[in-house]
Amino acid sequence: MDIVHYLNLAIKAIFVENILLAFFLGNCSYIACSKKIDTAIGLGTAVVFVMVICTPACWAVKNFFLAKGALHWVSPVFNNTDLSFLIFISFIAVIAAMTQIVEMLVEKFSPALHSSLGIFLPLIAVNCAILGAALFLDQRNYNFLESIVFGLGGGIGWALAIVAMAAIRKKLAYSNIPAPLRGLGITMLISGLMSMGFMCFAGIRL
C-alpha cells in the first residue's frame, strides 16, 4: 500500500501514457471542442469527473459480476460461471447510467456548474476515452484503489491535452494557414508535436 506506487501510476496515466496523445482516445470530442478555451475547460472537467466515478464502478461490475467465479457471493453454483464476454455491453451501460446520474446530481446540487458544463455531460457517454479507460482497467487487472487513481490520472491527462490544444488553436486563428489544412489538418499536425513533447516524460518514475 505504498503511496509511491500510486503516485507513479498517476504520473504514468497523466503524462507518460496520456490517454489522448499516446492511445488516441477521445480524439473526436478533442478536435470538435478545442476551438474555445472555455469549452475545453468545461469538457475537461466533466471528463475528469465522470472518469473518476466510472472506472471504479466498472471495476466493481467486473469483479462482482462478470469475471470468472465473481458470482461466487450469490451462490457457490456460479463458481465456474464466466460472463466476461458481457464486458463491453455492461461497461457501456454502466458509463451511460453513471453519466446520467452525475448529470442529475450536478443539476440538483450545483446548478452553476451544470449550466457551464451544459451539453457536454450527456455527450461524455460516447466519449471513447471513458470506455477506453474502463477496458484498460480490465486488461491490466488493476485493484480498486489503482482503478480510482488511473481514472483520475487519465481524466486529468485528457483535460490537460484539450486545454493546451484550445490555447494553441486560439493563437492559430491569427496565422495564415493553407485553406485545405485549416481545422482538422493543422490540429492533427500540432497534436503530433504535442505528442512528441509528452514522449519526453517516458521513463519518469519517483
Binding site: 489538418g185 492533427m188 499536425l189 503530433g192 505528442s195
Partner: peptide
C-alpha cells in the same frame, strides 16, 4: 503516436 498524427494530418 506522433507519426500517426502527422500522417493523418497530411492525408487530410
Amino acid at each position: 503516436a506522433p507519426g500517426a498524427f502527422f500522417l493523418l494530418g497530411t492525408i487530410v
